[in-house]
Amino acid sequence: MDVLSLIGLILAFVAIVGGNFLEGGHVGALLNGPAALIVLGGTLGAVLLQTPIAVFKRAMTIVRWILLPPRLDLTGGIGKVVGWSMTARKEGLLGLEPLAETERDPYARKGLQLLVDGVEPETIRSILEVDLSTQESRDLRASKVFESMGGYSPTIGIIGAVMGLIHVMGNLADPSQLGSGIAVAFVATIYGVAFANLLALPVGNKLKALVQQQTAYREMLLEGVLSIAEGENPRAIEMKLQGFMD
């Protein structure tokens, strides 16, 4: 679990609620069903309108990475590639076939299978780069779904505020109706801005960073597989791949 993300999420909302309490407010003042419906429903509707269904599904799939990110051990990955190179040096490329069958990472498994099949290095590069680019592009588009939510929600919060003020102006003769209208007006604005800046935009940016980490890991695997295909020394391969370490 990504403890930092969990702490950040809790701290952000505790700061807002705690600050409201210290100013003499109460939690009930921040709870308003109509305002939440306007902001969340309107934001979701706008995002669904602009987003292809495949991209939206992918976004809902990878959002769990915020708390449960993919396990990418760059040091362990380098060690694994060096192990492959030593196996290939001792047993030939066909010796990698059992490793390909047991490899859990689909990208690494594809690279190993290409080595076993005796594919030329340039062809291996072409195949793996297409796969890398496609996966990166798909996940980046998915992360932008949350950035879009962060762009729409403040504006929709303003729409909610205007709707609340219209309700207020239409009931000036009835003071009992003024309170609910004013509440919707101000709370909708808070919901819109808070949802964008405390949740949607941070989630989108965190997912983008995780996608970039995955891409760097796969680039390391790509270079490792190509080095094995070209028959480089395991020690030289290890030194080359160390360059991917931060």
Rank of each mutant, 00 (worst) to 15 (best):
A173S: 14
P175Y: 03
P175G: 00
L178G: 01
G179R: 13
G181F: 03
I182A: 06
I182H: 05
A183P: 09
V184P: 07
A185D: 00
F186S: 15
F186D: 13
A188L: 03
A188Y: 00
I190A: 03
I190R: 03
Y191L: 09
G192C: 04
G192P: 01
G192S: 05
V193Y: 13
V193P: 14
V193R: 14
A194Q: 06
A194N: 06
A194H: 05
F195C: 10
L199A: 15
L199S: 13
L199Q: 11
A200M: 08
A200C: 09
P202A: 12
V203R: 06
V203G: 06
V203I: 13
G204P: 07
G204E: 11
K206Q: 09
K206R: 14
L207A: 08
L207N: 03
K208R: 15
K208F: 12
A209R: 15
A209C: 12
A209V: 13
L210Y: 11
V211E: 10
V211K: 14
Q212Y: 13
Q212A: 14
Q212R: 14
Q212K: 15
Q212L: 14
Q213C: 10
Q214A: 14
T215H: 14
A216D: 09
A216L: 15
Y217P: 00
E219T: 12
L222S: 01
L222I: 00
G224P: 00
V225Q: 04
L226S: 02
L226F: 01
L226Y: 01
L226Q: 02
E230N: 09
E230V: 08
G231L: 04
G231E: 01
E232A: 13
P234W: 05
R235F: 06
A236F: 08
A236T: 08
I237H: 00
M239I: 15
K240T: 01
Q242F: 13
G243R: 10
G243A: 10
G243V: 07
F244R: 07
F244Q: 05
F244H: 06
M245E: 07
D246L: 15
